[in-house]
Nucleic acid binder design. Structure first.
Lengths: 344, 344
DNA sequence: ATTGCATCATAAATCGGTTTAGTATGAGTA
DNA sequence: TACTCATACTAAACCGATTTATGATGCAAT
């Protein structure tokens, strides 16, 4: 119940002004020529009573919060969870705290979250943006807020971002399937006008065009309810029995896809070969192990936070950087040539 | 670049006092007998200029923030990520925002995070506590802060908490393995004095005692570096070749265990049967599918946030509630009787 | 004795709200 | 007329910090 000590309490106890205490605690003692002796007395008392400045009051006055807002699509998705975790750690080391939120790819919700971040005075925004949020981001930029995007970017907006080479990654994975002898290669992905998704589709289409094969694209609406993903997926696979290989556009849809494939009793890779974007435990442990396009999670997180820290550093020269990292195609049994493909 | 509108701007524009504006915006117009006409004029202007109160200033004065601090062990773990997500949504619907953080089971870090939450004036704390944090939590409670724990609790502290029946769940799973004919049943888990872990071990030991079998417990230190988990695990399995069934204490160690089992070329369940605590995609999609103890994630999250909201409701009578939910043992192929076991 | 200049410290304004304790006005009443 | 009372609104204090502008003191130089 003991009330918290404030800067006034410290000042009163020592019979000095709170101004002096503030200067000392903010390392401006030298500059303000405060005597060594007084500095020591203040520091001693502060330690003794465990005084901590009220950061709300501080933020209110300074307009800084040492908090970075991080908005991901869905924190329960392993890809975003891992990145968030890494960013949190790096931020922490640099004296910043992170507030995360999930956008659910919902524009309205994202808008509200930005507004909440804003009035919490966060110092910077790290966003994997949903569609339709352009105006709000422009407003942020317009009022001088540091913004870094990752995983995707907004076409018409000039911000720092960190992405992977989605088109090439998907081109490469598709080509791999072609080389393994597959001919009816489908891409199943979330329907989305987001840059990363469109690039992945482009890579896929280009690879098939180069191989003179016909694309077969299935787009499914993003939804948190898994049944609403597996049902259309199941219908699609039942209908298109000619498919001999599938590319999945994200880890989430890949996981759902594997469930459906199992329900249908299809054998991988004999009945259908599989490659998924994103690589994590589910794919590694699957039998057979699933080939996957691994994003460089550490590097991604590292670049994101570095860009942000640079933008937050008042001394640094302001520039915008767009970073594209390359992925790794981890080839596993799920997409390797099998006897039937060879026989054909 | 346009400066944000403040309550004073609103007041000046209408030539009234900011007090009046504040009353109107906080729904105290009637109580303060402010005329209908003025109320309308204020509301109109507020909407027009898009005025939003600065919540830092508000929090500074009122001591409330409408933010709940949520501390989980590791946000990149699927169990915690899913719960966090559900809690976030429910909180959001009730006008609260969530700040999450990962404790890494690190007491010192947790201490700092609590302190950060505290000086951000969060209204409540939801914690899956690491060991050694008792004093800090006591202090929170002592100063009247609402605290709800989940997944585990602290022995000597009387707080609301939501957990599952860990001992019974593990007893039940162990018994299942015994009934399937397994005789050398190991439990591999994280070494920890946390309540949930100790209860799981207890359940396991009791079940084996009742079956007159000898327990074989392997405890591994928690670490974010996966190699430091798989290595001792590998060594343990290589040494104890007599094991015919393994229980894993958490999803994370279960995942690592499956990787090691695969590396060693062991067949599930022929060479070794497997049951893991926690149930998620990796286990469902594994071949063969892995039996798992499913925690009721939705119910858990629901109870946690409900307890918290109740504590935050000034009108509610203060009580502490300890809720224990039951789990579901999802039996899959990985732990079913196989020919060899039958033969014995 | 006065001025100039460090040196050490502080009073008061400020950030943007909420809340307490009033005030001004007019109607009703003894 | 003077007193109460309800109505409609407000000045000023406050939350806890930072920052700006301003003393007070002592010593050396004029």
């Amino acid at each position: 119940m003991s009330k918290k000590v404030s800067i006034v309490d410290i000042a009163n106890t020592l019979n000095i002004s709170k101004t002096t205490v503030s200067f000392i605690l903010n390392g401006r003692a030298q500059e303000k020529r405060i005597s060594e002796e007084l500095v020591e007395r203040v520091q001693k008392l502060v330690k003794e009573v465990g005084y901590k400045p009220n950061s709300l009051a501080k933020s209110l006055r300074t307009g800084k919060s040492n908090i970075i807002g991080l908005m991901v699509e869905d924190i329960s998705n392993p890809f975003f969870a891992s990145i968030a975790r890494l960013i949190e750690n790096r931020a922490y080391e640099n004296g910043y705290r992170i507030i995360y939120c999930s956008t659910d790819n919902d524009t309205e919700r994202t808008r509200e979250l930005i507004s909440m971040f804003r009035d919490r005075h966060v110092d910077g925004y790290i966003i994997s943006p949903p569609e339709g949020i352009e105006e709000d981001v422009k407003e942020l930029l317009g009022s001088g807020q540091p913004v870094v995007m990752f995983d995707r970017y907004l076409q018409d907006i000039d911000t720092d971002h960190v992405i992977v080479d989605n088109a090439f990654s998907m081109y490469n994975a598709t080509q791999h399937l072609v080389q393994q002898g597959y001919r009816n290669i489908a891409l199943i992905t979330f329907s989305s006008a987001q840059s990363q998704m469109m690039d992945r589709v482009t890579g896929y289409k280009n690879a098939l065009k180069d191989a003179k094969l016909k694309p077969l694209l299935k787009e499914i609406d993003f939804n948190r309810n898994e049944a609403l993903i597996t049902e259309p997926l199941m219908a699609f696979l039942k209908k298109n029995t000619g498919i001999d290989a599938i590319l999945f556009g994200t880890d989430h849809i890949g996981t759902c896809g594997l469930k459906v494939i199992r329900q249908l009793g299809l054998k991988v890779p004999e009945d259908v070969a599989v490659v998924s974007f994103d690589d994590y435990d589910v794919f590694k442990l699957h039998s057979p192990p699933v080939s996957a396009i691994a994003q460089p999670i550490e590097a991604l997180a590292d670049h994101v936070i570095s860009l942000m820290l640079k933008k937050l550093d008042a001394n640094a020269t302001p520039t915008t950087q767009k970073i594209t990292l390359s992925t790794n195609l981890n080839i596993r049994e799920s997409s390797l040539q099998h006897s039937k493909a060879v026989a054909e």
